[in-house]
Design a protein around this nucleic acid. Structure first.
Ligand SMILES: [Mn+2]
Ligand SMILES: [Mn+2]
Length: 255
DNA sequence: GTCACGA
DNA sequence: TCGTGACAACGCCGT
DNA sequence: ACGGCG
């Protein structure tokens, strides 16, 4: 077997099985996955820098088995940066970081299709950079409904003079990121997102759903509960292991 | 995708 | 030498 | 305290 390498700034990273089919219906190969991430890396890497990652490899493509990967595997190359995390009950997790293109290429070669970074960074893990809103449509809501509710939330944030950034999740919904300058805790951002969510729910009780039970959800669910250390969303520019190979796509603002 | 392990 | 299992729990929600 | 959620 001839080994293949990508050369990045003069350093070689081994890549394998580039002709393996990752999206069968679309005819998308592992090579295409790799090319996408190399091409998008100037835009993606800034969003991943210094953020612990929850990874989700699909070694045989999106129709095959997958697993979650929090701990960096022993066989990772020594140059791959990691971050040791001590959980409350004494468990330790050594998270992978994707701080440069070499690291990104190595992780993609591990068949990581999507990247789920923390909202906080390693040097201040208890203080997220953002409060986030995760909007998920449930029947009978449409994507247009999701847009409408997202715009309503944005209007409230504008009223507070808070800048916000909107992106598609790549699945069915939208994400709103509100930069808050690492001045607050996750408990703070969660309470903030919760209170804004309930304001919106009060305006549109029919359309907006705050139900915890998945079975009972109808309309647009505004999920504020992701504002917790260790919870994540698919990052901007992350591919999703779904039909059509969708990408979580940042949307332009009005100015 | 890769490794540790046991048959 | 080959087949198989492991690779993620955890921190919060709502009652 | 519990099971549910992502
Ligand atoms: Mn969600
Ligand atoms: Mn979502």
């Amino acid at each position: 077997m001839i080994k293949q390498f990508l050369e990045i700034n003069g350093e070689k990273v081994e890549v394998s099985n580039l002709d393996k089919i990752f999206w069968a219906k679309e005819g998308i190969l592992k090579a295409h996955l790799m090319k996408y991430y190399v091409d998008i890396s100037p835009y993606l890497l800034p969003h991943l820098k210094d953020r612990p990652l929850t990874l989700h490899p699909y070694p045989d493509g999106i129709d095959g088995p997958s697993f979650f990967m929090k701990n960096c595997p022993e066989h990772a190359p020594p140059w791959l940066e990691t971050c040791l995390y001590l959980s409350e009950d004494g468990e330790t997790i050594n998270f992978c970081l994707a701080n440069d293109l070499k690291s990104l290429v190595w992780l993609v070669n591990q068949a990581c299709i999507e990247f789920h970074p923390w909202f906080s960074r390693v040097d201040k893990p208890d203080c997220p950079d953002f409060a986030i809103f995760d909007l998920d449509p449930f029947p009978p809501a449409t994507f247009d409904d999701t847009i409408e509710i997202t715009q309503l939330i944005k209007r409230v944030l504008d009223e507070f003079e808070l800048k916000s950034f909107i992106k598609t999740s790549g699945a069915t919904g939208l994400h709103i990121y509100v930069p808050i300058g690492r001045k607050f805790t996750y408990e703070d951002t969660r309470n903030f997102a919760m209170r804004v969510s309930y304001i919106i729910h009060r305006v549109y009780p029919e359309k907006v759903c705050m139900e915890w039970d998945v079975e009972k959800r109808k309309g647009i669910r505004i999920d504020y509960t992701q504002n917790v250390k260790g919870k994540t969303l698919a990052s901007p520019y992350s591919l999703r292991p779904l039909e059509g190979a969708p990408v979580s796509t940042p949307l332009p603002g009005r100015n």
